[in-house]
Write a protein that binds this DNA or RNA. Sequence first.
RNA 1: GGGGGUGUAGCUCAGUUGGUUAGAGCGCUGGCCUGUCACGCCAGAGGCCGCGGGUUCGAGUCCCGUCACUCCCGCCA
Length: 587
Amino acid sequence: MHVYRTHDCGALSHADIGKEVKLSGWVHRKRDHGGVVFIDLRDHYGLTQCVVDSTDKAFSAAEQLRNESVITITGAVRARSEETVNKALSTGEIEVQIAELELQSAADTLPLQVNSDEDSGEEVRLRYRYLDLRRQRPHANILLRAKIIQSIRQRMVGLGFTEFQTPILTASSPEGARDFLVPARLHPGKFYALPQAPQQFKQLIMVSGFDKYFQIAPCFRDEDSRADRSPGEFYQLDLEMSFVEQADVFAAVEPVVKGVFEEFADKEVDPDFVHIPFDEAMLKYGSDKPDLRIPLEICDVTDIFRGSDFSIFAKNIEKGAVVRAVPGPKCGSRAIADRMNSWAQGEGAPGMGYIIYGEGEARGPVAKALGADKSDEVKQRLGVGDGDAVFFACAPASEAANLAGKARVRIGTEQGLIDENLFKFCWIVDFPMYELDEKTGKIEFSHNPFSMPQGGMDALNNQDPLTIKAWQYDLVCNGVELSSGAIRNHLPEVMYRAFEIAGYDANVVDEQFAGMISAFKFGAPPHGGIAPGIDRMVMLIADEPNIREVILFPMNGKAEDLMMNAPSEVDEAALRELHIRKQLPKS
RNA sequence: GGGGGUGUAGCUCAGUUGGUUAGAGCGCUGGCCUGUCACGCCAGAGGCCGCGGGUUCGAGUCCCGUCACUCCCGCCA
């Protein structure tokens, strides 16, 4: 007989009745009846009830066991009597009568309860992550993640993509997020950076002639955390394709993402991946990651308020503001309107105007100033009726869109308009190539500087930069940005010109992106790609509100690993070797 | 860097307008119980009420500061 087990804890059934077996696992729960003790023995595979009677020699050892101790038991598989069968367990028809019991590893009093569905505080869970991961839901989440990644690999290979590894120690890039830096021992004063994404490498793989690349790629960005953003590191399904247009990338990615969601999620997946231009998304949904489950569309009503007697708005409009209106079905009460208003103030807006429609008339201070005809015009445009309300955001375009977008989500959530059982995807397309930095007034890249501008060199030379669109796209699901991608700019001349508009001259490009720009001078295929976030996909599929729930060993919000004590001090000798001296902030 | 929330037993939480000895469930220790499966019953241990200061006859409760965790803003090509 094997030293530890003949079967796992989920394996035994009525077919094994009468067999001598050996099981190893954790004491999940113990029920001590004085004359008989039941032990639920748990491992990765399942749970088996083990029994010991007071007459058995293992009895006293069993009585003393604490939860989560690791034991090995030997005994015979017995049928449970009909009334003691447990239908909730796959092994519920049988139990093992313990003949021998060996304690492999005793457990101290636990800092968190493994056999409970109730989560402990995050700090305790992260410090004792190995205990937390024994629990049913965290264990299942990590397993789900593994299966999803496995499925993605299979699907990608099936589509003719090849998996490559790219360097983890690379060069710092001036664009984008803050880098994690690694001192270079052999080069005093110089640093490697961890890749924020394998962006340049994957493009260079295309220039190297490999045609279709993918990788489950670790990405490192030294930015602050959020519920859906883990600090430090995360994973992307990074992919790139040669000789493609935007539609080809969509055609490759859609079935993979859709397929994975359909395979693993309990919710319905809307098969229609709608395409929405960025400008339209900002207008109708006030966001570049709209939650399309909310059946509300924002309308621009600037024209109705222009020159009207509602002077606050009318004056702002003269100064260039716009008015965006959000329909509020069944929101036609003073209490709801007041709540929206104070919510908007909490968001940093001066407030949120509203009109309440009821009993054939429009009510509220806005309606009073605007007059019946114009109030009715708003009603018609928004398609609302009696008992509904309309809320207004008046501000410069991007601010108004933003507030209206948040209001739309709030109304959708509060009024229960969101179908919680649905995944609704969309592609946001035609992102602007450049945007204006509001503080400096300078033109800068709005997304990825390596994206191909729509219209190419001609657009760069002859169009107002702020009107130029890029072949740049996002994949969004239920209001979560899953992915960002682009058709790349593979033409050195167009690249130099694109950077010139953003204020970088040619030698900056030559220095900062030396490898890539030089590669593009030796025959580069037109190419493009995308990089869906793995953690976010798993989070959506697992229906978890927090990304840490789908990461094995996550860091806390301050980017500390409480289990491993990272980051940590290092020896002075190690610093000397790296030519590094600490200069700590004064406290 | 800024704003909100939370912090009470090993864990999850309750704690009234400020009032005597700070409670519950789980866990832990001891006892009883031979068919439970969140077993049941009895008893017990376990508290710097995050920390520091203040108001008060009296503070878990009110005020100020501070720390930790968390959510959000900034940040995230």
